[in-house]
């Protein structure tokens, strides 16, 4: 690739980012109802969660089925901190991030020795254990009743109780997350993650400390899951263990796979699509899951790199044909 076409690529990419950001900023002016804004809130939260999950799955090639467990811990940490101790929203979020980061780091220790399917099964068990522990620790989490009346975010006296300000707060978090992941990917750490994914032995002899990098990948994705969890609790205002089920893990996985793993934009597209799709497919009623299953199946067969990969290919074709 010549430097000229590379720099033209950057221009196209910049235009794409500006357009997407403008659309995201303009969205509340189009979506007038609180119902639709609620869906947009969810989409933004899942963009954060999926972007963090992709650090593990797409960047480093580690398939964890316990990620929703970390999301749940983040949600409960912040909810409990704020409702029972009256801590400010930002303190709750930070506590969620620190605690999930720590737990992610602990999970990574056995994960260093276990590989492939065994790792996936281990994390699957961990995710379920986390959910069951939350359900049985009634004194802290009120068990299966869940925690209700979680206050909407408030930062330095400024309230984000209304749907539109909350939307912009979540958008800010999502943009910061995307920026973080983007910077991470082009750093020596991101390259090391990718190297481990593509060839562990190759990375090892190239001087990459595989254990340290896997721990870091686990911890980073856990911190982002914790932040997303905290934001979720304060957005939806009610959390219960049932929400954080294995089904949600599958949806999270589908977001990253359909969007395109290992890319920055992939999880963003995937999360936005899979949150809004159930609304768009409301008319098929109970057949929704069927349509969803077929969609995932088609994606795996026809779009191995997800929608982001498809976009890239189409873009390349358009460019070479002109």
């Amino acid at each position: 690739m010549t430097t000229q076409s590379a720099s033209r690529n950057i221009v196209w990419r910049a235009i794409g980012i500006v357009v997407l950001l403008a659309l995201a900023i303009a969205l509340p002016f189009v979506l007038k109802s609180n119902y639709y804004l609620g869906i947009a809130h969810q989409a933004l939260i899942f963009i954060i969660l999926a972007s963090g999950y992709d650090v593990l799955l797409g960047f480093t090639g580690l398939l964890s089925f316990g990620h929703i467990g970390l999301f749940a811990i983040g949600a409960y940490t912040s909810a409990i901190m704020v409702t029972s101790t009256g801590a400010p929203f930002m303190v709750g979020i930070m506590a969620a991030a620190v605690l999930t980061g720590l737990i992610g780091f602990l999970i990574s220790i056995p994960a260093l020795r276990i590989k492939g399917h065994s790792l996936t099964l281990l994390t699957l068990a961990l995710g379920e254990v986390i959910r069951l522990v939350i359900r049985s620790m009634e004194w802290l989490t009120s068990g299966s009743h869940g925690i209700s009346n979680i206050p909407r975010p408030e930062i330095l006296g400024f309230s984000f109780r209304q749907a539109v300000p909350l939307y912009y707060l979540l958008l800010a978090f999502a943009v910061l997350t995307i920026l973080f992941v983007w910077r991470l990917r082009s750093s020596r750490f991101g390259r090391a993650f990718n190297a481990i994914r593509d060839s562990e032995i190759g990375a090892d002899v190239s001087g990459v400390n595989i254990s340290a990098m896997k721990m870091l990948a686990f911890a980073i994705s856990a911190v982002l899951a914790g932040i997303a969890g905290g934001l979720y609790a304060h957005t939806v205002r009610f959390i219960s263990p049932e929400f954080f089920s294995l089904g949600l893990t599958i949806i999270l996985l589908a977001m990253v796979l359909i969007g395109g793993r290992g890319t920055i934009i992939g999880p963003v597209i995937g999360a936005a699509l899979l949150i809004t799709l159930p609304e768009a497919l409301r008319f098929v009623k109970e057949y929704y899951l069927l349509a969803f299953g077929v969609a995932i199946w088609m994606c795996v067969l026809l779009l191995p790199d997800g929608l982001a990969g498809l976009g890239k290919r189409l873009f390349k074709r358009a460019r070479t044909s002109t």
Partner: peptide
């Protein structure tokens, strides 16, 4: 044992990792 998902330039950069300390 190349890294297929990384560009040719990034493959070489990975080899530099152990000399980087940022």
């Amino acid at each position: 044992q190349l890294f297929q998902g990384l560009s040719v330039g990034d493959n070489v950069l990975v080899g530099r990792t152990c000399r980087m300390s940022s």
